[in-house]
Design a protein around this nucleic acid. Structure first.
Lengths: 134, 134
DNA sequence: TTGACGTATGAATAGCTGTTCATATATTCA
DNA sequence: TGAATATATGAACAGCTATTCATACGTCAA
């Protein structure tokens, strides 16, 4: 290893030692290097949409109720404590993001979780709030 | 169904008046049993608050940028593509939920992630949207 | 001290969101 | 057939939210 290799080719480390002004004015390449590692714009929007769907108490309750098995709309309304119309509206949103799936038999509609990640998300977030409470 | 059905003044009886007919998926006792396993109201609110914070593209970009290391406010503004004022407002929200922490040196403020779950949440949600796209 | 700089924050506003209400659709039963 | 039931959906409204603008605070250099 050469004695002149004081600086490692680490863009993040290079960024850390500079001031804001220097960074913006003199090092657009380092800025671009970090920017290249960021999520694509479309991915950011999609991820935020999923989080936004889970960012409502009613929908959290719906997902929580569905995490123990499929439920019909009126049972969900009863469990969550709002009208069946409101539940149906929320289920439509959850369906559009493929967070839940629906199975129809006669005039009944049984909803269930359509993604094995969702329960994990709920669990991890609950862990966070429990830890943050301490 | 007989009209002489015994109505006990407990949660199961209270639920029966709100729920669907008895030929639905769940009888009142089962419904009450499910309800007992649901998240507490305070937990639901806290969990939804965290998801709500992550449910905005700007804040997702901030968390994404922070997932590679700490950043000062003006760098975040540049990386995210909005004003430093807007970033500061969002950082305040993220701070209030203990999702980020701040380290101050002089007039600079370096923000970093304050929870090991957050990166996992971002990762899992990205997995979901990638799978849902197929 | 002065001035510039990095960050923080209150006010205001446009845009979004979740609920209710009314109604529609579809299925089952008498 | 007609009524009752289960769900779905459009419209509308109140409440919330993310940004911008202006400004204030604390720090550093001259």
């Amino acid at each position: 290893m050469s004695s002149t290799t004081v600086r490692k080719p680490d863009a993040a480390a290079a960024l850390r030692d500079q001031t804001c002004e220097e960074r913006h004015a003199l090092d657009p390449q380092a800025l671009a290097a970090v920017q290249a590692r960021l999520l694509a714009s479309g991915t950011v929007e999609s991820v935020a949409d999923v989080f936004k769907l889970l960012g409502d108490p009613t929908r959290v309750r719906i997902v929580d109720a569905l995490s123990h098995g499929e439920r019909c709309v009126c049972d969900l309304a009863s469990l969550v404590g709002i009208s069946e119309s409101a539940v149906s509206h929320q289920l439509r949103l959850l369906r559009s993001a493929r967070l839940v799936r629906v199975r129809r038999t006669g005039r009944m509609a049984f909803y269930s979780l359509d993604d094995h990640h969702v329960v994990g998300l709920l669990h991890d977030t609950r862990k966070h709030v429990e830890e943050a409470a301490s």
